[in-house]
């Protein structure tokens, strides 16, 4: 009966995952391997194709809007939605402006992604019964880790899917952007390529995300015990899930838990990059929600 309860929890969370994150790992991998049946993603590999990417998104904007109206949240990835709203001015360096606009579009997508993660967190049994301050703390500290984990299925060693899987942006192009833009994604690629060797499926990912959210060691938590109790149940469910989905993969559970340590370092570095950006880019505004999350984080 206990195993049955754990499987029921796994199914419940998987349903919430599908509801909130429709670009699943299965679909992203199908797109990346050319087996999705849809058109191949538009490839951005230089400034010219970045500008063409804006046109590409413009042409496809209507289906995207419908997507939102149906409350089917898109996958977690930096997007290009905001790119279409701004235009290059006649003055200044067009590449600089494009880079900043791309960064701003990533911000917009991140804000939407935070909302999706929040909805997913609320679906974890017992989460909404926690102290409201603790719910805020768990999200504040967990959400960037979740966003980074959810980027992994969209990435391979050569680049990443963005804009709901409609575009593939090359790793070399991202690396070529001016500092610190060009440095920001490289640690995520390095992490993702290693993480992807674990070959988790969407069911596994679901439970891992819930485990990360329910971390009882976040600074400032008021009532740790109920959080730890919830996490323990999800951990049992994850362990069982991995035994079923990867019977031959020894120590996968332990390997996965070790990734949580790497994640914290990536988040610390990411926040540092953002602080650097705010100093260097006078025209840059950080979205209030992202400001809230990153303020006094690490």
């Amino acid at each position: 009966p206990e195993a049955a309860d754990l499987r029921a929890l796994s199914r419940h969370l998987y349903e919430a995952y599908l509801k909130n994150f429709p670009l699943t790992k299965a679909k992203a991998r199908a797109i990346l391997s050319g087996k999705a049946g849809d058109k191949a993603p538009f490839v951005i590999h230089d400034m010219k194709s970045l500008m063409e990417g804006e046109q590409f998104i413009n042409c496809r904007q209507i289906p995207c809007q419908e997507h939102h109206q149906q409350q089917l949240a898109p996958a977690l990835a930096p997007g290009l939605a905001g790119l279409t709203e701004a235009h290059c001015g006649s003055d200044g360096n067009i590449s600089d402006e494009l880079e900043l606009r791309f960064f701003n579009s990533c911000q917009s997508r991140s804000v939407e992604a935070v909302r999706e993660v929040t909805e997913f967190a609320k679906s974890i049994p017992g989460f909404i019964d926690l102290d409201l301050n603790d719910q805020v703390t768990l999200l504040k500290y967990g959400v960037i880790e979740i966003l980074i984990i959810m980027m992994a299925p969209l990435m391979n060693k050569d680049g990443t899917l963005i804009s709901y899987g409609q575009i593939f942006m090359t790793r070399e192009f991202l690396k070529s952007l001016r500092k610190p833009f060009g440095q920001m994604m490289e640690p995520k690629f390095e992490f993702s390529v290693k993480f992807n060797t674990l070959e988790l499926d969407d069911n596994d990912m679901t439970l891992f995300l819930a485990v990360i959210i329910l971390s009882g060691d976040r600074p400032g938590l008021l009532n740790v015990k109920p959080i730890e109790r919830l996490q323990e149940t999800v951990l049992h469910s994850l362990e069982l899930q991995l035994k079923i989905s990867h019977p031959d993969s020894l120590q996968l559970f332990a390997k996965l838990l070790q990734k949580m340590t790497d994640l914290r370092q990536i988040v610390t570095d990411h926040v540092h990059f953002i602080q650097l950006l705010r100093k260097r880019e006078v025209d840059m505004c950080l979205h209030p929600l992202l400001q809230e999350i990153m303020k006094d984080l690490y």
């Binding site: 935070v114 909805e119 609320k122 909404i128 409201l132 999200l139 929600l289 809230e292 999350i293």
Partner: peptide
Amino acid sequence: LKEKHKILHQLLQNNTSPGDL
């Protein structure tokens, strides 16, 4: 904490749409 994280708090309490953000 809630005061310093008004939007997060709002997201937790309501079904905020992306437009509201």
